[in-house]
Amino acid sequence: MAITVPRPKLTWFERLYLPAIVAGMAITLQHFKNMLLGRTKVTMQYPEQKWDAQLPEHYRGAPALVKDEAGRIRCVACQLCEFICPPRAIKIEPGEIPVKDRFSKVEKYPREFDIDMIRCIFCGMCEEVCPEQAIFLRKDYAITGLTRAEMVHNKEKLLEIGGIMHGVVLKWNEKK
């Protein structure tokens, strides 16, 4: 059933139209004035101002590999993160630790460790699944590059972002 929507009856003053224009222009001028005087709050000016200090503890930024206190790469190339990664951004090439090294025959190590940051969805599953607490999501969020190749973080880059983590896993240390 069609319903006739009743139009509001306008008074002659409203039908004059001009007072409404003047009122509207007064409102916009008020906004203009407040902006000029700096009374209006505007959004954060991103590249100049940053929110880095206020990022929460649980913020999930770029994934990165960490070293322990002794400067050893914690990753043992178990490839769990490679398997769990939903967008398949991680590519690990495991290698044996050389015989001369003190830790040879103990564990594997990642010869290559690439994370494609174009694919990464910052879900944090790699961090969750890692049995060695070797991969963490850091607070870096501005990941840029001019080419696709630049957007792939290799092992050096990941270690650089990760830095040293003082963790609870002390597997390779001397037993006390």
């Binding site: 916009t28 906004h31 203009f32 407040n34 902006m35 000029l36 209006t40 505007v42 000016q45």
Partner: peptide
């Protein structure tokens, strides 16, 4: 610029 200021932008 004026349109931005009127609309509370920069």
């Amino acid at each position: 610029k004026v349109s931005a200021l009127i609309q509370d932008r920069l």
